[in-house]
């Protein structure tokens, strides 16, 4: 029993080794009235990567959750409703493009129907590095098992830029950098001690974004 508790304590301690840093840059005032909403969109123009839909959904859940939750229009619903104005090839990259978009009656009316006050662009990715160690597993008639040790580092870098649909200007940005080391010791059974890097980046960025849009950040 004592050994089991020790193992659980070690698992809890090791799986928590993630450092998250959040920076905020504000250029304008923000607030949200009753009936108004926001949309969070992933940037997918980069050749080498694209912001994962799961991360965008995670941030949207954090922003929309809790007693002080903000109404967030689901990304896919928005992309379909605004089709084809926010596809990777056609999405506005700068606020000057947003101004051009708002000159198109159909687009302007549809945005108004959804009551969208802010568009949040999420851009970034999680990269894995410093992978080391080996784990070998064998299986035979009498049973099987693994032995070894593996470790790796995950680094999540994301930036959220907030566009105000009233002023058609950027009102600020929030960036997050979360780094964490994961371990996988294997003594008969592999024990994954995973650093929740992307999850921490998501909750950190989501909570800060919620404060920012409410005008508290």
């Amino acid at each position: 029993m004592y050994k089991l508790m020790l193992v659980l304590l070690a698992v809890t301690a090791l799986s928590g080794c993630t450092t998250t840093e959040i920076d905020e840059f504000r250029q304008g005032t923000t607030s949200l009235n009753v009936g108004e909403s926001i949309v969070i969109l992933g940037r997918r123009q980069n050749n080498n990567y694209e912001t994962e839909g799961n991360f965008v959904e995670c941030v949207a859940n954090v922003v929309g959750g809790g007693n002080d939750g903000i109404t967030v229009v689901p990304e896919q619903e928005f992309l379909d409703a605004m089709f084809p104005f926010f596809e990777p090839r056609t999405a506005p990259m700068r606020t000057t493009h947003l101004k051009q978009l708002m000159e198109i009656d159909q687009a302007k009316e549809r945005l108004a129907q959804y009551g969208i006050e802010y568009i949040v662009w999420l851009d970034g990715l999680t990269q894995r590095s410093q992978q080391a160690g080996t784990i070998s597993c064998t299986i035979g008639p009498g049973g099987g098992g693994c032995f070894g040790f593996g470790t790796w580092q995950d680094d999540s870098n994301f930036e959220a830029e907030v566009w105000d649909l009233d002023t058609l200007e950027s009102v600020g940005s929030i960036s997050t950098d979360a780094v964490g080391q994961s371990y996988m010791p294997a003594l008969v059974v592999p024990i994954p001690l995973i650093a929740r890097v992307e999850a921490n980046a998501c909750s950190g960025l989501g909570n800060q974004l919620k404060q920012f849009i409410a005008g508290k950040g």
């Binding site: 089709f83 084809p84 596809e87 990777p88 090839r89 056609t90």
Partner: peptide, 13 residues
């Protein structure tokens, strides 16, 4: 699906 949507966007505009 992304490629098809891209085609639709190109044809539309």
């Amino acid at each position: 699906v992304v490629a098809m949507r891209d085609l639709a966007a190109s044809l539309t505009f």
